[in-house]
Amino acid sequence: MQEVPVQRQHVGGSVCLLRLLGGDGHRTVRGFLGGSLLMNCKYWHGDEMKPTFWCKLGTDSDCAADIVITSKNQSMVWRERFSIRDNHAGKLFMVTTEGLAEGDMGTYLCKVQRSTTQREESYGVKVMVSTNTSAAMR
């Protein structure tokens, strides 16, 4: 699969949408202070009942902490300004960040947890936050 960006704008309230369909490397998504980001992360057939994560990378190229995570029994989770909703039929999960702050800048991972014998599937997203609305939507 290959990464395909999808952009959507709301004039009154800021929303950036990014669809991640796999592949290597990081995608960059830009939003603006106080706005929201929505990311769709696609996963493979067979991963529908596995936990999905949104986490921020730490200094050792691994997640410093999981921000939100789903489970087999809980396909939608809210945690402070972050939510994650797993669409098992569509084989994707949507991550939302509301009230963007400068501290939200950094690299995040969309992840699917597999068994201990299988490699975890993850896709990198670099989040940039701008105070300039027109720069954020480029």
Rank of each mutant, 00 (worst) to 15 (best):
L20A: 00
E121R: 06
S134Y: 10
D66L: 15
A135M: 03
E80R: 09
C63Y: 08
G58V: 02
R138E: 06
T107M: 04
S14I: 10
D104V: 04
L109E: 03
M49C: 08
E48D: 09
T70H: 06
M39P: 02
K111D: 02
R114H: 12
M49D: 15
G124H: 03
R81V: 04
Q2W: 08
H88K: 12
D86A: 06
L37V: 08
G35F: 15
T116E: 15
E98D: 10
R27S: 07
M137T: 04
R79W: 06
N73W: 14
R85D: 10
T52Q: 14
L33S: 00
Q7E: 14
V127T: 03
V11G: 06
V68C: 05
R8V: 12
S115F: 14
L17T: 03
T131Q: 02
N87Q: 10
G13T: 13
F53E: 00
T133K: 13
L20Q: 04
H10K: 11
C41S: 01
D86Y: 07
S61N: 07
Q118I: 11
V77L: 14
W44Y: 09
R79V: 01
S36K: 06
H88C: 08
W54S: 00
R8D: 13
S36L: 07
K50W: 13
V77I: 15
I67A: 02
R114E: 11
Q74L: 06
G99M: 14
A65C: 07
G35I: 14
G58E: 01
G124P: 02
K111W: 10
G124Q: 04
Q118W: 15
E80A: 11
M105W: 08
V29H: 11
E102P: 05
M94V: 06
T96G: 05
S83N: 07
A101M: 08
L17V: 03
L17C: 04
I84N: 03
G12K: 12
K56M: 05
S61Y: 03
E121S: 09
T107G: 00
V112Q: 01
L38S: 14
Q7G: 09
G46C: 10
Q118P: 14
Q113A: 12
D66N: 15
G106Q: 04
G23P: 08
A135D: 07
C63K: 08
E120K: 10
F93I: 00
R119N: 11
R27A: 06
C16M: 15
G23W: 11
K91N: 05
V11F: 07
V77T: 14
A136Y: 09
S83P: 03
L38A: 15
G124F: 03
R30Q: 11
A136V: 01
V95T: 00
M76G: 05
G34P: 09
Y123D: 04
G22Y: 05
W54K: 00
L33P: 00
S130P: 03
G99I: 07
M39G: 01
G46R: 14
I69M: 14
Q9L: 08
Q74M: 07
R19C: 04
A135R: 03
C41D: 02
A64L: 07
K50E: 12
I67S: 02
A89Y: 13
R138H: 05
G99A: 09
S75V: 12
G25D: 11
G58S: 01
A89C: 10
K72V: 02
K42D: 10
H26E: 05
K111P: 03
K126W: 05
G99D: 13
G25T: 03
R8F: 15
R138T: 00
F32E: 05
D47T: 00
H88M: 13
Q7V: 06
